[in-house]
Amino acid sequence: MKHFRLLLGFSLLATLLLTACGPSNNVRLLSPPPLDAAVLPAPNAPRVSVVTFADKRGDQTTLGVRRDKSAFVTGDDVAQWVSRALADELARNGLQVSYAATVAQARSGNPDYLVTGQLDEAWLREPSTTELSTGLRVNYVLANRQGRILHETLNSGQSRTGLPSGSAAENLLLETLRDLVKPMTRKIVQAIEAKK
């Protein structure tokens, strides 16, 4: 009986520790590492302006649901997080990139190309103590001065199982963002190259 109580005590303690180490309800949206100063655009590289994506999610106040049915929330602007990451990734690929809050602001700089879009989904779920899943979906448009060149919807999602930690949700969201932005950048760069 003494061993049973001891085992039960350890089990309860382990459960409490796992719960305490899990992600908090407030999630920071981590950005990819800043641009390396060594990455400079070519002098004749196309000028691209990325406009802050519109947030078209049904519920813009939460990111998703925890296993206890409470909400994951963030103090960060989710659509801006996605569009800034795209601008940085385009710059890493040698383009001259500017970032604008509105289409009018972007056009005032007379860029060669304009990227606009909308964030349709951004969610984080915690199905169990040891599992997290995320998803992002954007609809974006690349246009030059003559009109639309590329229009596409892209999705990215991930799941991870492991010991809970405070940074697990933030890191998983960052990986999901990278998995969304890299193919988007590749397609934009290819479309621009095809126009040369």
Results as ranks from 00 to 15, higher is better:
27 V>M: 03
28 R>E: 14
29 L>C: 06
29 L>Q: 09
31 S>H: 10
31 S>Q: 12
31 S>W: 01
32 P>D: 12
32 P>R: 08
32 P>Q: 06
33 P>H: 04
34 P>W: 05
36 D>H: 02
37 A>H: 00
37 A>K: 10
39 V>M: 01
41 P>H: 07
42 A>G: 10
44 N>H: 04
45 A>S: 10
45 A>G: 11
48 V>Y: 05
48 V>L: 15
49 S>Y: 09
51 V>N: 14
52 T>Y: 02
53 F>P: 12
54 A>W: 01
55 D>W: 08
55 D>T: 08
56 K>H: 11
57 R>P: 09
57 R>C: 06
58 G>K: 11
60 Q>A: 14
60 Q>H: 01
61 T>P: 04
61 T>N: 09
62 T>R: 13
63 L>F: 00
64 G>Q: 07
64 G>I: 07
64 G>F: 04
65 V>Q: 11
66 R>Q: 15
66 R>W: 00
67 R>W: 01
68 D>H: 03
68 D>P: 07
69 K>P: 02
74 T>W: 00
75 G>Y: 07
77 D>A: 13
78 V>I: 14
80 Q>G: 06
81 W>Y: 10
83 S>V: 11
84 R>L: 09
84 R>M: 09
84 R>E: 11
85 A>S: 15
85 A>P: 01
88 D>Q: 15
91 A>T: 12
91 A>F: 04
93 N>P: 04
95 L>W: 08
95 L>H: 09
98 S>K: 11
98 S>F: 01
98 S>T: 15
100 A>K: 00
100 A>I: 02
102 T>K: 10
103 V>Q: 10
104 A>G: 11
106 A>C: 09
107 R>P: 01
110 N>Q: 15
111 P>H: 05
112 D>L: 07
113 Y>H: 13
113 Y>Q: 14
113 Y>C: 11
114 L>Y: 03
116 T>E: 14
116 T>D: 07
117 G>W: 05
